[in-house]
Computed example of a mutant assay.
Amino acid sequence: MRRLHAALAVLLAGSMLSLPGSALAQERTVKITGFGAKSGVVRVFGINSEAAMKAAADQINKTGGVTLGDGTKAKFTVEFLDDRCNAEEGISVVRRIASTDAFVAVGPTCSNVAESLFGILQKKVGDASDSGLQFPIIADVAAKGGLAKISEWAFRNVPSEFEMYKSLIAWIRKEHPNLKTMYGGVEKDFAHSNATYGVMKGQAEGAGLKVLGTSEWLLNDTTFSTQVRDMKRANADIVAISAHPFTTCGVLKEMARQGVKPKLLIGLTSSSSVETLQGCAKQAEGIIIPTSFAPVTPEAKLAAEQVAKFGGSADLHSAAAYEIMFILKDVIESQKIMAKPDTVKADRNKMRAGLAALKETKGLLGKVGRTADREAIKPYLYVHAKDGSWQVLYKPTL
């Protein structure tokens, strides 16, 4: 028995010596919760965001993790919740996240969710008369313009679609001066598609293009014969389609069936994705789309490879989620966030203050500026569908 006790003592001493830190505590972890659409027509965007967050967390963890305010090292873990692209569901999901020890959340996918969700946050920090939720949220996908202005607890890492389509339309007018008319098509019931079509149309008219008409459909529509018939009748030089991959492909296939062949096609940012090429590569050939992501830098190529390993694809939206994980790491370290159950309120305030103080972050295509309205100023380029892949067409000088 004495020999057994002695042996156990030796084993225990050895195991204690092998543990890092004087407290012999378990390795610390910091859970970052994302949320977005993982069901329904736009579920692929939530799936890609989750994969990107996990891929970035894996890269951070492999290089030492994140340093917390007390000097200890921690590893990131990622949880991702489905809000079904529904505003009420999104609010419920965030309230659930905020009831835990979380000090930040990443999401959502859909602009209609973000608009409603940001509305329940405290509008102005420190306003004692405002009982809104005091919880920082940074969006990766929701792209409708101006959403971060709703609350000082709201942040976004999305590109300015106004600037991208302003630049694209100006470039088209310069490169193709013979094109004089445009016809539009829009997913009328989806906030992002609808808002961006307003940008496309406004920029086209401002640049001297004559807009001959607009066809409308819904996100869940599957037939487009009437809309394309109207498009064919207009016979415009340019057709601009502000829709997500599923209905973009439906419209393009119907255009092919009816023999509609415009001289130039413009698409929605969100359709510069693998899903569009999987659904209608042949019909999408030549469509031009501005985007804030393409695997054209070493960092972007690595991100694309890693996101694929986690079951997603890298596009302008999931790339934003990937970047956000590195942003959160930097803010945690600069603000000395503790990530403990008894520091939740302080950590949330530190995270909000740290995000608000950012003037610039590291992006996969280069430096990303930050505005006083908590929005991003991201580099971008134009891609076009060619031979079954997205290829860079032009990179504007910003």
Rank of each mutant, 00 (worst) to 15 (best):
I238H: 03
I238Q: 05
V239R: 08
V239I: 15
V239G: 01
V239K: 08
I241F: 12
S242E: 09
A243Y: 07
A243H: 10
A243F: 05
T247W: 07
T247D: 08
T247S: 12
T248H: 13
C249V: 10
V251K: 10
V251G: 10
L252E: 01
L252D: 03
K253W: 09
K253H: 12
E254I: 07
M255Y: 00
A256P: 04
G259Y: 03
G259R: 08
V260A: 04
P262H: 07
K263D: 14
K263Q: 14
L264N: 11
L265S: 02
L265I: 02
G267N: 09
G267C: 08
S271L: 07
S272K: 06
S273F: 08
V274G: 09
V274H: 12
E275P: 05
E275Q: 13
T276G: 03
Q278E: 14
Q278V: 06
G279Y: 06
C280H: 03
C280R: 01
C280Y: 04
A281M: 08
A281R: 10
A284K: 04
G286P: 00
G286C: 02
I287C: 01
I288Y: 12
I289G: 00
T291L: 05
T291R: 00
S292Y: 01
P295Q: 00
E299D: 13
A300Y: 07
A300Q: 02
K301W: 06
K301C: 03
K301L: 02
A303K: 00
A303I: 06
A304F: 05
A304R: 04
E305C: 02
E305H: 06
Q306P: 05
A308F: 06
A308V: 05
A308G: 09
K309R: 15
